[in-house]
Nucleic acid binder design. Structure first.
Lengths: 161, 161
DNA sequence: AAAAAAATGAGATAAATTCTCATTTATACT
DNA sequence: AGTATAAATGAGAATTTATCTCATTTTTTT
């Protein structure tokens, strides 16, 4: 048996998040400002979708409310942020990084947790075919889709139980 | 060639809508009141999802704003109303009648129209299997799902063009 | 380093929804 | 049918969520 000691260098991770935040902004020709970096870092802190309230708590008045909304708008405009609504009508937001895979969402009605889930290639392929049929039938041009699943986490969720 | 004359008896349809509204309420042990009947009738007037604003216009001050929201809440509670949010964050609402088939939604980003669409049995079957996998993987109990498709209606839509 | 452009903070404003409570309406019970 | 009781409604106040305004600060350009 081997024992590994893992040193968790928070500074390193923070520096990393700051770096990637800057990169996201410069890659999209958006000026690099402190509020934007802070908001991006807060978004990166969790891989699952978060509410605006979650973000405000993380930012702890380091960014004004109006600025937070404005920055989220900026990030939507450059397509690195996805905004949608949970079943209880709360706006949630998640970062879409270059390497983010196409995914869908699973909602827990008890604790409100939202989990990113991937579905099989077979399923996605059949869905694309269905979408082509719908496009023809309704004379639509469809550019996006999503599958949402609603339920309750039985025991694993950290918020519930 | 034959020519058919179709007489559209509004009174008959109104009476019918009023009757089914009453039936919906009594079937669910909800007291039958005028505002509830009016809201149900407004909901029945269109088969596709409608915004709260649409309803208010149809009701033309015959039902107070607070009552409208309250009645919609009541209808949700007895599971005859489905409420969700369109991509531009507007709340929309649709009646779920006993005979309503399982369906999904198609959103037009230009005119805001929302269309009910059914997908093939083959697709729904595969989706159920995917959902079973997700339930196992995340230890969830999933009780509902929906597929949303986003695009633009190319020329058929009555609101656009 | 200075000038120009852009972003921010603080609070005002707007829109959507919920809440409060006095009055009205519906239901249950003679 | 008529009355008592319970429930629902209307009107507007309050709350919540998001956007807007504009003077000040920060970033970018030169």
């Amino acid at each position: 048996m081997r024992i590994y000691l893992i040193f968790f260098d928070t500074a390193f991770y923070n520096k990393n998040m700051s770096e990637s935040s800057r990169k996201i902004l410069s890659d999209h020709n958006v000026s690099i400002t402190n509020p934007r970096i802070l908001v991006l870092e807060a978004l990166m802190e969790s891989q699952n979708p978060q509410t605006i309230d979650d973000l405000q708590k993380k930012l702890q008045n380091k960014v004004a409310k109006s600025t937070l909304y404005r920055v989220l708008g900026d990030l939507k405009k450059i397509n690195v942020l996805h905004e949608f609504t949970s079943p209880d009508n709360t706006t949630v937001v998640e970062l879409l990084l270059h390497d983010a895979e196409h995914h869908h969402h699973l909602f827990c009605g008890d604790c409100g947790e939202i989990i990113d889930v991937g579905l099989s290639d077979e399923f996605e392929k059949l869905l694309s075919e269905e979408i082509k049929k719908i496009e023809r039938k309704f004379n639509f041009h469809i550019n996006d889709h999503r599958v949402e699943m609603f339920g309750t986490c039985t025991d694993q969720c950290s918020n519930c139980k």
